[in-house]
Design a protein around this nucleic acid. Sequence first.
DNA 1: GGGGAGAGATGCCGC
DNA 2: GCGGCATTTCTCCCC
Lengths: 246, 246
Amino acid sequence: MWSAEENVSLLNDAVLRRETLVFFARCSIRYSGRAESYVEEGERVFLIKSDGALIVHQPTGNAPLNYMKPDTSHSFFVENNILKLKSTNITMKEFLEATISKILFFNSEKLNDGQTIIVQGTEEDMSEMLMERPELVEEGFKPVSREEQTKYGFVDVLGIDKNDVLTVVECKRYCADLSAVTQLRRYVEKIMVSKGIANVRGILAAPKITENAQKMLEDWGFKFVSVNPPKYLENFNKKQAKLDFF
Amino acid sequence: MWSAEENVSLLNDAVLRRETLVFFARCSIRYSGRAESYVEEGERVFLIKSDGALIVHQPTGNAPLNYMKPDTSHSFFVENNILKLKSTNITMKEFLEATISKILFFNSEKLNDGQTIIVQGTEEDMSEMLMERPELVEEGFKPVSREEQTKYGFVDVLGIDKNDVLTVVECKRYCADLSAVTQLRRYVEKIMVSKGIANVRGILAAPKITENAQKMLEDWGFKFVSVNPPKYLENFNKKQAKLDFF
DNA sequence: GGGGAGAGATGCCGC
DNA sequence: GCGGCATTTCTCCCC
């Protein structure tokens, strides 16, 4: 038979020792902070990290059910013979309480990982590629600066077209939508005002663009250019994919 | 001594039985799909869900290190005496490979959870509140419709002010930024065109607004109203907070 | 499935 | 810390 009391100190000790704690539990969860949430009893996976971060997952789905940021303090205790986990982040004014009817299993361990992930094919990689290969934007395009700061935001690539007209290029690594067009529009307007130039072009560089965004782009006299974000590891992975298929 | 071979079938079986599998492992990870990533060897938490979702966490931080969507297929195998996990999502054209030098522990179990989380204090709750208490927008404001999606776009609240001028209200549950203003601007312009009315007002309702956004709002003749999203469970949690403090 | 927008968005960088 | 913005954003809703 499972008993709440005998687990409380083990769980609290694991947290105090700053181990990485994982457990499966049947529980209901209440949260309050930036918003408020409640979920009825079900079986979930809990992960408490060494920095105090808490992540709760249901047995399906990509996103966590509930979570608490790093530097949250956690306390297991028994109240009216019921095990509870109370997680408090004072600075963020956030609170989470799990009412646990059963712990199905738990384990904790000191984990070491000082590595940082490297991601390629980002929007930044894209704008770098356009700086190096300006012909991808259009014939005769000459980049002037990258990531130019304006009061109203960053400009990915600023350049001059073949007719010496100042041109703002906004990159999107995904299918460009309405907000991408309004963002470009915002930059073009800002450059016009700050530089005192009436004729500034806007180019949106992305793999593709939605129909409505294309229409709004045309309404504002801007141009779409189809560009894919660079993927330097593609060859390696194509081989892997083929091995998976056959 | 730990041996790779003896764990392979246990791990694969757990996935095949659609259990929720969790394990700690020292590994490096390569991913390719929408982007590409690589991370050197470190100790991490793996979670494979019953629907095929994979989530990998480092021992600190809120966000996952790597992940794969539901309906990904997973295969553990030994290659050159090294344990590997290969995860493939054919439809999304995504691939992940973990090269595992050591499994520190693993456990799997069939978890049951059919519950759905309830969240309150959302933007939708906010616009509902403004429909019920229009005086929060401004004195004399009369709401006409909420969430008019089909005809005029995703306008949160559409109404008429005390001078019978058509007014678009855009809600934000957080501090309103530049994109909130451009979004409002887009809606106002759309309404002007579709209704053929030159005089349409725009109001941005949010807890607060950034300085630049305020300036842009004024440039476009729009108005800011400070409104907080409703939190119905606030009383319960205030009590909890006090108990935590003292 | 695509499009549009919110999210307890998160995380990063710059000022 | 605020601000502006990308994200393997994710998720939901609606067409």
